[in-house]
Structure formats: C-alpha cells, structure tokens
Simulated scan of single mutants.
Amino acid sequence: MHWFYELQEQMTVEELLREEWGLGKKIVHELRMAKGVTHDEAPVADWKATLPKGTVLRFDWPDSDSPYTADADTAITVLFEDEHFLIARKPKGMNTHPNEPGETGTFINAVIGYLVENGHSYGEHIHRLDQGTSGLVIVAKHPAAKNIADRMLEKKLISRNYEAIVNGSVRPAEGVIDEPIGNDRHHATRRRVSPNGQAAVTHYRTIRKENNGNTRLHLTLETGRTHQIRVHLAHIGNPIVGDELYGAEPEMDGTYALHAYRVSFVHPFTHAKVVVEDPIQL
C-alpha cells in the first residue's frame, strides 16, 4: 500500500519517523530496507538530509499480515475509513479480539474479513471494549498507524466517550471518579477499587433521569483500565443496569447498558480532526 504525507515543517525523514511519529526501530528498519520513502524530486537516499516544509513524501509500505483469521461471514458496521484507520461498531456480546490462537467470531476477525475483501491484509485494534459493551473501536490498517496510535493513546490524545444507564440517582449530577483499580482476589475476572491498584480516572455527566428512576450518563475516560467504567460506577453506588458482575440485577437478555458512542482525535497523517459518533438507543 502507499500514501502521501506533506511535511508540516522542515525536517529529515529520520526526524519524521523517529521523533514526530515515534516509530519503533523495527518498523523504521523495514521501511528503509524496502526503500519505501520517495519525494517529489527523487528517491530519498539520505534520510538525514533536511527537506523543506511542504515536501510531499510518498510512502510505499511493505504488505503486512495480521495474526487473526479472516471472518467474511460476519458483517460489521464501518463508520469511518481511510488508508490508515478504520472505525467500526463492535456489537454487544462479541469479544474485541481472540483470547487464544485460532479463535474466531470476534470483532477483529470480522474486521480482517472486511479488509481482505477490500484488498487489504492488515488490521490491528488500538483499544478494546468488554464483551458486553457495544460501540466504536479504532483499527489501524498498517503497522505505522498502529505504532503511532498506540503512542497517541498513551499520551491521552484519543478521546473516548461512553453512554450508560445506571441504577438510581447519581449525586452529584456530574463529577470525576479518581480511584485506583486492582484485581479482586475473590473473583478471577472482577476488578475493584483498591489503594494498591493502578490509577484510574473517569469523568461523568448526567444526561437525564429515566422514567423508571434510573439515570443516563455520558462518561469520558482519562485512563483505560479493565472494566474501569463498570468498577467506578459500582463503587459510587450506581452500577450499570444489567451489570450483574458489579452488583446490578441481570437483564433478561444478559446484557448491560454501556455503549462507546464517540471517538475523536487529530489524524496523525492528515492533521484533520476526526470525530466519529454512533448514538444508539440503550
């Protein structure tokens, strides 16, 4: 695959790859060996030569494969796609990725099936959602995009917003839950607020009170701990409706009311603001 990138200031190819994008040594080496960078005038032989602002670089990226089995029989809803990223909806009840080699039926298997049908061979999720959570997941379509997006996630440059319906009234109506999260030694898969856990910060805001006395919230993550929203809301006494693992009464269909409805970030290659929303009725 190939794409073009216009330098935003004067710099060398080496500076762009290592400092601006923060690519790892392996990826940079593969690109160098493939002679995968050219510009307007000629092939870039010297990666240390300073190029002027506005220089258009062409990247010819070697084909890469993902370790996941393609599942072409499972349809997915794609809400954004370009040559670098794909953003699609993960349904409730589906794992984001396989938990063991050869496993199929997950979101990323369906994404790979979609990509293969459209002439691509690589796809890696940037973040994950719990099996019972529906919503938007960002997928990188080549290794450089994966590398850069991982770094953006670490630096909190990707915003993720959720909607949830919780039991009861939430007081105060908006706020920040800043409580560390660790493993629950009494349950293999459950997490809990623990002074020895990892730092976790969740912002919440009440949208409205439901007719049945429950509360609809919008939430934003500063961190991405396992079950973070579920743990934090249960900790303040307002577990998500249907989330039996964290103290709520189970729903008839076994699901719980949490949906990742919005993601946003500044595109690292085009510098455009990307905002994708997927509001659904919980």
Rank of each mutant, 00 (worst) to 15 (best):
R171G: 12
L221W: 07
T255H: 11
I236C: 04
A149N: 00
K273E: 15
G102K: 07
P62W: 08
H186N: 06
K155G: 10
I108P: 02
R230I: 05
T38C: 02
V137T: 03
T215R: 10
T215M: 03
D130C: 08
E244Q: 08
R160K: 08
R58D: 03
L282A: 07
A70L: 13
A164C: 04
N109D: 03
P172M: 10
L136G: 07
H125K: 11
I27F: 11
D150S: 13
Y204Q: 02
W47L: 12
I126K: 07
W21A: 07
D130V: 05
H187E: 05
E251T: 15
D82S: 06
G135L: 01
I236P: 07
A164D: 01
R151P: 12
P67I: 02
F80A: 14
P101Q: 11
A88P: 09
F269G: 05
E210D: 13
G22L: 04
S64Y: 09
V266Q: 14
L16H: 01
D73H: 15
T69I: 15
A34S: 05
D253V: 03
S194V: 03
G119E: 12
E154L: 11
G254H: 04
S134T: 04
L31T: 09
R230Y: 06
A144P: 08
E179K: 08
H203F: 09
P172T: 09
T189E: 09
L136Y: 06
N238H: 03
E14R: 13
E100Q: 13
E20N: 07
L258R: 05
G119A: 12
R151Q: 10
Q8K: 14
E251K: 13
L233V: 01
I108N: 04
R205S: 08
H232Q: 00
Q131Y: 07
D178I: 09
Y261P: 00
H187K: 00
I27D: 10
S64I: 09
P91T: 11
A272L: 14
G135T: 00
N238K: 02
E124W: 12
Q8T: 15
D46I: 09
S66Q: 07
T50C: 12
L17D: 03
L115E: 12
E124L: 13
P98W: 06
R89Q: 15
N238I: 10
E83A: 13
G113K: 06
W47G: 05
